[in-house]
């Protein structure tokens, strides 16, 4: 019955396609077109809904209104200040987390002993939601910059560490053993073979965990802050300025996207060897 048509198809072989190619590139033009659509269509839906829909302006401001709010925030100098404040917190927390997670992750991946020592505790702590640490951090560190940076540190440290540890497991054993037969010592294998091998994975881990940092900085600022995009959003909510909320959200998205782009660029420059 239904099988008949299936059999027919099989005898003709796999039909050719452009759109549905698996694990292959699509033509450049099509790719750019689709990428443009990915932004343009949601944008127009938003505009349509805001202009002709029944939703009130207070709930769904239109793109021009948001642009106007953006202009306001810019003129008042808030936007630069807030963005800088949030950005520096993210960078601060992230740099501290990286400074710990790179050596720790590599050591855990390399030495079964270090892994046994840290994996259980890291495995447990990473399931404690970072946001749940906010009250504790405020009690310990007050409401200045310290608790916010600490929150980002806690929120990215463990995933970074585990991802880097996993990457070390993929260093081919042959490469390590070859190094020994070339006269390499253990510390040389650690610093001159394992470490360079996982650099691409470290950058990838950073790209993924950067998103977490941005989530957490907003959480921290919603609780207590003088400045920051999270703080701005909270203020806007008090006065029902949804257009400002939208503006801040778009800024957040764009900055995250830019950070991701620069990390990808770093990957292309530093890890040319790892690009297929």
């Amino acid at each position: 019955m239904a099988n008949v048509s299936v059999d027919n198809n099989q005898s003709q072989g796999l039909p050719p396609t452009i759109f549905w190619r698996i694990a292959e590139d699509i033509p450049q033009l099509l790719q750019w077109g689709l990428m443009a659509i990915s932004i343009i269509i949601p944008f127009f839906l938003w505009w349509l809904l805001a202009s002709f829909g029944t939703v009130e302006d207070v709930f769904l401001p239109s793109p021009p209104q948001v642009a106007e709010a953006f202009g306001h925030l810019w003129q008042q100098g808030h936007l630069i200040q807030d963005t800088a404040a949030s950005f520096l917190r993210v960078v601060g927390g992230f740099v501290f987390a990286a400074a710990v997670s790179i050596p720790l992750g590599i050591a855990m991946g390399t030495f079964a002993s270090i892994r046994a020592l840290f994996e259980p505790i890291v495995g447990i702590i990473r399931y404690m939601p970072a946001a749940a640490f906010v009250p504790l951090l405020i009690i310990y560190l007050g409401i200045g910059e310290a608790p916010k940076i600490a929150l980002i540190f806690i929120g990215t440290l463990f995933f970074n560490t585990l991802m880097i540890m996993d990457a070390v497991k993929f260093v081919p054993k042959e490469l390590i053993e070859t190094t020994y037969t070339l006269g390499g010592k253990r510390w040389q294998v650690l610093f001159q073979v394992i470490t360079p091998y996982v650099v691409p994975n470290i950058i990838d881990a950073f790209r993924i965990n950067m998103a977490t940092s941005w989530n957490l900085v907003i959480v921290a600022e919603l609780v207590a802050a003088e400045q920051g995009l999270g703080k701005r959003i909270l203020l806007a909510q008090k006065f029902l300025k949804t257009d400002e909320i939208f503006a801040c959200l778009i800024v957040l998205g764009l900055i995250g996207f830019l950070i991701d782009l620069s990390l990808r660029l770093l990957f292309r420059v530093w890890c040319r060897w790892a690009i297929k």
Binding site: P172, E174, L175, E177, T178, Y180, T181, L182, G183, V193, P196, Y197, V199, C271, W273, A274
Partner: peptide, 19 residues
């Protein structure tokens, strides 16, 4: 008693440092 540079080794796969 352990690996050393007096005995060089060539494996079948994954032999070069890719970077």
């Amino acid at each position: 008693i352990g690996p050393g540079r007096d005995r060089g080794m060539v494996f079948q796969r994954y032999t070069l440092y890719p970077w």
